[in-house]
Design a protein around this nucleic acid. Sequence first.
RNA 1: GGCCCGUUCGUCUAGUGGUUAGGACUCAGGAUUUUCAUUCCUGCAACAGGGGUUCGAUUCCCCUACGGGCUACCA
Length: 470
Amino acid sequence: MSNFGSVKVRFAPSPTGELHLGGARTALFNWLYAKKHQGSFFLRIEDTDKARSKDVFTSQILDSLKWLGLDWDEPLIYQSGRQERYKYYIKKLMDERKAYRCFCSKSDLENIKEDSYALYPGTCRSLSSDEIKTKLNQGKSFTIRIKLEEGYTEFKDLVYGAIKINNKELDDFIIARSDGSPTYNFTVVVDDYEMEISHVIRGDDHLSNTPKQLIIYKNLELKAPIFAHLPMILGSDKKRLSKRHGAPGVQSFKDKGYFPDSLLNYLALLGWNPKNEKEVLDADELINLFSFDQVQKKGAAWDEKKLHWLSGQYVQNKNSQFLLDQIRLLDSDWGKNSDISTLINIINSLKPRAKSLHEFIVKSKHFFIAPDTYDEAERLKAWPDSNATEIVGQCSDILTSLDTWSSEVLESEIKSFASKKSYGLGKVIMPLRLAVFGSLDGPALFDIISILGKTETLHRIQYASTRMPT
RNA sequence: GGCCCGUUCGUCUAGUGGUUAGGACUCAGGAUUUUCAUUCCUGCAACAGGGGUUCGAUUCCCCUACGGGCUACCA
C-alpha cells in the first residue's frame, strides 16, 4: 500500500457487450487488490460510445459481477453523466495553452499525412489568434489536440516494470472531437483523478495508451496513479479473447452450472500464480496470496478442461443441501415430484460423478424417468443372451420377497445370490443395471435401487424383461 | 511501416548462473471399484532460433523469428 492513502481501484467496462472472461479477470484482480489492502473497488461504466452502448449490457455486467461475488463500493459512476467535468478540464488546458484547436478535417489529414501511419504533423499547432478567429468565424469545425513536449515519458508498471518512451513517437493526439465530446484517453484521466484512483489495474492492451494518459496528467498538473497491466486472456487458438471472436460470457458459465467461486478460482490462476502448489483456493485465500509480482506478462489461453476439473473439486466440497438449492436455481423443476430426502440421496450418489450442477441434472435423468429404450451396444454387452434375462428374473424374485429396502440389504442379498449360483458379480449386476437405470454408467447399483424404491424398481425390471433376449 | 510488450511440456505455470528443469490440467497405462466416475500410482511431454558474456547459461546482453498491443474525431 502506498503511503499516500488508501487503495482505490476501479473496473471500467464499456456496456457494449456482456461481461466476458477477460473483463471478469480484470475485475477480479482489481477486487483482490482492493480487498487485500482494505481498499475500495469502484465501477465506472464507460458508456460514451452512444452507438454501441446499451443499458441491457450494463445490467448484464452488473449481474455477472454480483454472481461472481465481486461486490463494489458506491457510487457507481457513469461517464455519460460527467460531460461537464471533461469540459472543465479541456477548457483548463486550452486556457493554459497546453491544448489547441485543430481545424483539419479528416480529408485534410489524409492529405497532410504521408501515409496512414504517419503522425499528425502539428499543422494547427501554432496558428495565430487571427487565423483562429477567421476560421472560427467561417464556422469551421475543430477538434482539440493536446500539445506534446519533447522528452520522454516513463513510468513503472507493477507488472511490466519500467517503461520509457520517447514523446517523438507520439503526436498531438485528439482529446476532444469536433462535436466537443472527449476521447477515451482524456476521460480516463479525468475520471481516475476525480475518483481518486490510486491504482489503475487493466488489460495490457492499454499499456501503449498509458504514456498518452501520463502526458495528459502532466499537462493538467495532476498526480498520476500507479499502473498495473494484466496480460490478455486468449482463446484456445491463442488469439486474444474479444467480443467479436465469441468470447464466452460469464453468464454462459453460470448457465453451464459452474460455481462462481470455482470460476473465480480458475480466473485467478490465469496469469497469476499463488507461489505454492495448492490450486484450489477460496476467495479469502486468493486475497491473502495475491500480489502483482506473481502476475504473468504473457497472455494466457484459457482451458475449459481445467475449469471443469476445478469445478469438480468444488462440487466435492459442497454439502448436498447447498447443491440441491443451486440445482433448483438452474432448473426449478428438477426432481419436483420427489421428496427432499430422496433428492439428497440422488445428489449424494452423483456427487463424485458430477463436475458441474448441469451434470447433476443430466446424470440424474433416469432417477426420475424410467428408461424405455436401451442403447444397442449396451444391450449387447449386458444382455447378450437369455441367460441375462433369467438372472434378472431371479433377481426380481429376490427383490420382490424383500421387506427391508436399503442399499446394504440389497447388496448382501444380491451378492449372496450371485455366489450361491457361482455367477460373477458383473454377470448379475450389469444386466440389472441396464434394466433399472437404462445405462451401464452411473452410481452404485444398490444405491440406485434403494433410491428408486421397491415398486419402481420392479416396474422397471418388468418392462425391461419384455425387451430382453428370450 | 514505427513504437511498446512478450516467448519454459498441448494448456496453466514454478524455477535457477551449475537442478534428473518441479507442479497442475489434458492424454496414455495401472491399482481400487458391480459400471462409470472418484481416489491413488506410473508414464508421455518444454526452456523459439542464432550469437555473445562466463569455467559454465533455460537463467544476463544483443540479433532474428514468431505472437500480442498501440499507432482512430472506438473504448
